[in-house]
């Protein structure tokens, strides 16, 4: 009886060099997919996440982003306002997001 179990040694293992090297994007994490930078994204997410009808106020925003300078937070808010992602509600310190998802 032949117990010849010849493993098919078909093709030599191709080492595909050149392709599929992950993590080769020289990471500038300043521009995630939607064209906003990191600060802007965080601000937008916080505002989106706020359940209050009048929106999130700037103080809350600041206290939740304490690792960031106030100026950048303010800048991000301004930017998001300009782009139409957020808008001010009861006063200039309360913001809601337009993308209601």
């Amino acid at each position: 009886s032949k117990a010849h179990n010849q493993a098919s040694v078909g093709r030599p293992s191709i080492s595909n060099s050149g392709m599929g090297e992950p993590g080769n994007y020289s990471g500038n994490n300043f521009m995630p997919a939607n064209g906003l930078n990191v600060v802007q994204n965080q601000v937008l997410n916080l505002i989106k996440a706020c359940p209050r009808p009048e929106g999130l106020n700037f103080q809350d925003l600041r206290s939740q982003l304490q690792h960031m300078p106030v100026a950048s937070v303010k800048q991000a808010v301004d930017f998001l306002c300009n782009e139409g992602h957020i808008y001010s509600t009861v006063d200039d310190d309360h913001f809601k997001s337009t993308d209601a998802e």
Binding site: E83, G84, H85, I86, Y87, T89, V90, K96, T98, D99
Partner: peptide
């Protein structure tokens, strides 16, 4: 408040203009 509505409308317009 009218103001809120107006701001929201304006914001939506800006967003729409962006996405064209």
């Amino acid at each position: 408040l009218v103001r809120i509505q107006r701001n929201k409308a304006a914001a939506l317009l800006r967003l729409a203009a962006r996405n064209v």
